[in-house]
């Protein structure tokens, strides 16, 4: 009987030890994660980057997003000036962000822009009056404006620019 009582205690001990080890591991990883963090959350940083832009944009509506992702540029240069055909509802399955941008970081930047500017709807393919430029490498503004038939409204620094579509 003593042997069987020990069996129950061993059973309990197995679960308790494992749970404690796992919890301690979780705590240690949490502490390390916190200690290694650089201070600013990348999402907060992106929101700060777009803060000035947000203040000059309308609070609602639809705006276009452009960036310097290589695949994105190539794809839309080819289709320009008549933007790709879309179904009446908006973006087709093939125009969803992961298929439009080459780099995951470019997709993330687009999604973060949408998150920061909500409830404005930020589209990456449809032609709109206002165009938000989010560039990570230096671009020639006159060349970009000529290529995409847009006029610079304001350069907000850090690669964030607001353009207006040229009247056709």
């Amino acid at each position: 009987m003593r042997h069987s009582s020990a069996r129950i205690n061993i059973g309990i001990l197995i679960i308790v030890l494992l749970a404690i080890i796992q919890s301690e591991g979780l705590l240690v990883s949490g502490i390390n994660f916190y200690a290694r963090s650089t201070g600013e959350d990348p999402i907060e940083a992106h929101e700060k980057r777009l803060k000035d832009l947000k203040s000059i944009l309308p609070s609602q509506g639809v705006i276009r997003y452009m960036t310097d992702d290589k695949y994105y540029k190539k794809r839309f240069k080819k289709n320009h000036p008549a933007f790709p055909k879309f179904n009446a509802l908006g973006q087709s399955f093939h125009e969803l962000p992961p298929k439009v941008f080459a780099k995951p970081s470019a997709t993330q930047a687009y999604l973060l822009t949408q998150y920061a500017l909500a409830p404005l709807i930020v589209v990456n393919t449809i032609d709109c009056d206002l165009v938000v430029g989010n560039f990570y490498s230096g671009i020639s503004i006159p060349e970009f404006s000529r290529q995409h038939h847009v006029i610079l409204v304001k350069d907000l620094g850090s690669g964030v620019m607001l353009f207006r579509r040229e009247s056709r």
Binding site: A19, L26, G30, F33, S37, D41, Y115
Partner: peptide
Amino acid sequence: IAFYAAFICALVSFVLYSLVHPH
């Protein structure tokens, strides 16, 4: 005792992760 110890570990870990990534 073990339950509350594990709970504190999980709670502290939760707070630390959330401080780094509040979004």
